[in-house]
Design a binder for these strands. Structure first.
Lengths: 106, 106
DNA sequence: ACGATAGGCAAGTGTTCAGTTGCATGTCAA
DNA sequence: TTGACATGCAACTGAACACTTGCCTATCGT
């Protein structure tokens, strides 16, 4: 699975996730149309397709094939690990090291 | 305030946040030393300094000047908006649009 | 079968970004 | 004041990235 953070780094990809949050199970052309009309973006179909590939390889978008249509839906489960990663551990860090020890190089 | 997502896109910056989570209120040199020793990264001091600037402009790191030392501490409050952004809205989206309407271009 | 629609593949281009290099500023101890 | 320490500023370089261009495959309706 590719980098979730790098997938979220691009504003266009975040807008795609916004669109999929607003309306799930959309095709590529549908997403393209709504990005242009609703969000004022001027991206080509190929650009959106590449963005969807990146989002899918990051686990943020899951696809479903049906005939010549390919439906995309958002999957927010990879986002949970982002916040939990930098939660402070229960070990009292700020209490152990007093401020009077500036350069504590290891 | 700069882009929080782009600040998180770089692996080195995420490791810096890991370090600040493990031990708060560190100076620039202290962070450099621990990144090299603990995390096996070979980044120069200037590179880390630029990373800290980006993290600070994104609101993820707050600084405190004291003489010639500048202490850095992590601030995880901008992370909360990431998960809440793509929470499905209470309006029943999947129920309104049946799956039998494939190309619903606006 | 034929045309139209939906999507995929791959090479090429311009920009953004991470990292380096070199020097400058400011602080502290002796 | 002198030297060592901690950090800041700015230009340059190389690589990653977003986007385009052009063509190809597959599915559906008539």
């Amino acid at each position: 699975m590719a980098d979730v953070f790098k997938a979220l780094a691009d504003p266009t990809r975040r807008t795609i996730l916004d669109e999929l949050t607003d309306r799930d199970e959309q095709t590529l052309f549908e997403i393209c149309s709504r990005l242009i009309n609703k969000h004022g973006l001027s991206s080509s179909r190929q650009a959106i397709s590449q963005h969807l590939e990146i989002l899918e390889s990051a686990g943020l978008v899951r696809t479903r094939r049906e005939g010549r249509y390919k439906f995309h839906r958002i999957d927010t489960t990879p986002l949970d690990a982002i916040v939990t990663r930098w939660r402070p551990s229960s070990t009292t860090e700020t209490g152990t090291g007093p401020d009077s020890v500036p350069p504590g190089n290891s």
